[in-house]
Design a protein around this nucleic acid. Structure first.
Lengths: 342, 342
DNA sequence: CTGAAAGCGCTAACAA
DNA sequence: TTGTTAGCGCTTTCAG
């Protein structure tokens, strides 16, 4: 245990120089003589000196830290976005403070406020359940970029997302092309992203002349949510031949529900997910999905953030990335007997 | 954007009181008159005042923050341990700073040092690849509890883990009881946890009189690692009837490899994992596994940490939790034709 | 109950 | 090149 960690003062005394010289030397300034530098570095090493970030942040008035709020650490999708964020943040020489709100608006807000108290210089929010008012208020204090949504705007809010409506359409079109007509949508609940995906579903069904077949079942963006929604879907008469789940995790749940009924995927029911988490590529799962460029989205977000940290009055931007349908083993044409025009 | 955020000074001026009174009021001290308190709170609200954590930490000489290093955010297992940590940390009124090292020793060390610079009052390390020397040096500066390993010890290092050797034995015994003899182990590579699980496997095989059948194939604790290890296993002559994977993620990969060969799980090959991640409970996966009480381990770790923060000279403890075999759908008796004494 | 003053560890002018 | 002097925003004695 540390009794009184050594401070810059102790190092200065030991090296026989002044505090400010130590400060410069520790940060590798060129205006320190070789002799002093090595003296200082040696003293620091012997003492086990470690600069105090709080003190530095206070004096410097910069924390060299960005805050990241992520919706849910249980969904590996967010880890993939985070990879992109982290590597970019690191190359800028910044640290990241990572927090989760567990999809709870109050918790999310509390965590964000805490980040602000730590004087983060910028904020990246990877999906959230926050009211726009909160987000806008927070953006007044600190540059903010939101990943996966762009419904909340403001002068210092940048956004990075894919077009969920268009992505959902891809999913439906894929199923329609395979010959499916009774395609249900397992919704992700009452949040922006899920609403968009549902709208895309409805739109594509209409375009395909299947408006009458449209059926949205309420679920959630989790495996459990997909499981229970799929159970309900399987009770429908006639039984749907395909399901479009609001995200990959819920698609996994849906597949489980199908199999629990003694049915096969894609033999009896085709399932499409959304997000493109790398787990879905496993043959065990082999999930057909609408894939977002997750890591790239994270990196883009971080780049936007630093750009704004450097140029506070730049206009805010809304970035769009493209999602793509990745056909895998969870979709196939419907059985002939299920086919209306079989 | 914030030009000059309001400080405690501004609030004091606006409320017509002194700085120190504001400080007390903000932290809900009872020695502030009702009148002053409401004046101060109102002023703070109007100004949008937010205390500066760096300044507080400096003056207070406590950060009210604990640091958490986690091996890998892609493995949902760690999110489950984290749940336990976070909720416990929150009830203690602390914040947590979360970082990852991505199983890279150098990165892990760098992240830990950064945490120390931020003056965290304690450290929880959820799995790691660090040399003992580093860990011990760090523990000198700050209370430390390591989750999933207890091979590195020190006067202020607490540990929380399950017995991986015993857990691995459970897995093998389960397979043996089902009638398997050609049981291979897909190892997780060259790290403490994987070594223990391998040792448990070898031990149990010996005990079962199957020492001659023992076969360890090198992989990694990831889905990809399990996939490639399983591929090699499937090339063996005669083909193994069961695989014990070093963890759940690699078990998922192994199942994929089996299925890619046109074989079935558990029909042709049984697969057992390790960890007990909740994803494995899904019927889609239905993974037989050796389950650790993940959330509980996280909570225990956090409680140990706060206990030591309060009692710095307490003796270090090594906590053991029990793992349990959870039989699910990925294991079954071998086919009769595969059965040596069919 | 309230206010003044000192100082946490560091950086940043400014002098020397 | 180096040392001195002010703070950064907050908490904390210690007097009133």
């Amino acid at each position: 245990m540390s009794e009184a960690r050594p401070t810059i003062h102790d190092v200065a005394a030991r090296a026989g120089v002044s505090k400010s010289l130590v400060s410069l030397a520790m940060r590798g300034s060129p205006k320190v003589s070789e002799r002093s530098r090595s003296l200082i570095l040696a003293a620091a090493a012997e003492l086990g000196y470690r600069p105090n970030a709080a003190a530095r942040s206070l004096a410097d008035r910069r924390s060299h830290t960005v805050g990241v709020l992520v919706l849910d650490l249980h969904n590996p999708v967010f880890a993939e976005i985070l990879d992109g964020v982290q590597s970019e943040v690191r190359t800028h020489g910044y640290s990241t403070m990572l927090v989760t709100g567990g999809a709870d608006p109050d918790l999310e807000q509390a965590e964000l406020e805490k980040l602000l108290e730590f004087q983060v210089e910028g904020l990246i929010v990877i999906a959230h359940r926050l009211p726009g008012s909160v987000l806008r208020r927070i953006a007044k204090e600190c540059p903010l970029v939101v990943v996966t949504r762009d419904d909340v705007t403001g002068p210092s809010i940048d956004t990075v997302r894919n077009d969920d409506v268009a992505g959902a359409r891809l999913a439906v079109e894929h199923l329609v092309a395979l010959g499916h007509r009774r395609i249900v949508h397992l919704s992700g609940g009452d949040n922006r992203v899920s609403q968009d995906r549902r709208d895309g579903y409805l739109e594509a069904m209409r375009t395909a002349g299947l408006a009458g077949q449209s059926c949205v079942i309420d679920g959630a963006l989790t495996d459990a949510g997909g499981y229970s929604a799929a159970q309900q879907a399987l009770d429908l008469e006639p039984r749907p031949t395909a399901m479009f789940a609001a995200n990959d995790m819920s698609a996994l749940g849906a597949i489980a529900a199908v199999q629990d009924r003694g049915l096969g995927v894609p033999g009896d029911v085709s399932v499409v997910g959304y997000d493109g988490m790398s787990l879905g590529a496993l043959r065990t799962l082999s999930l057909t999905t609408v894939a977002q460029p997750l890591g790239e989205m994270g990196a883009l977000a971080a780049r936007r953030l630093f750009d704004r940290i450097d140029h506070p009055r730049r206009r805010s931007v809304r970035l769009r990335v493209d999602a793509a349908l990745v056909p895998r083993g969870s979709t196939a044409p419907p059985r002939r007997s299920d086919h209306p025009r079989g």
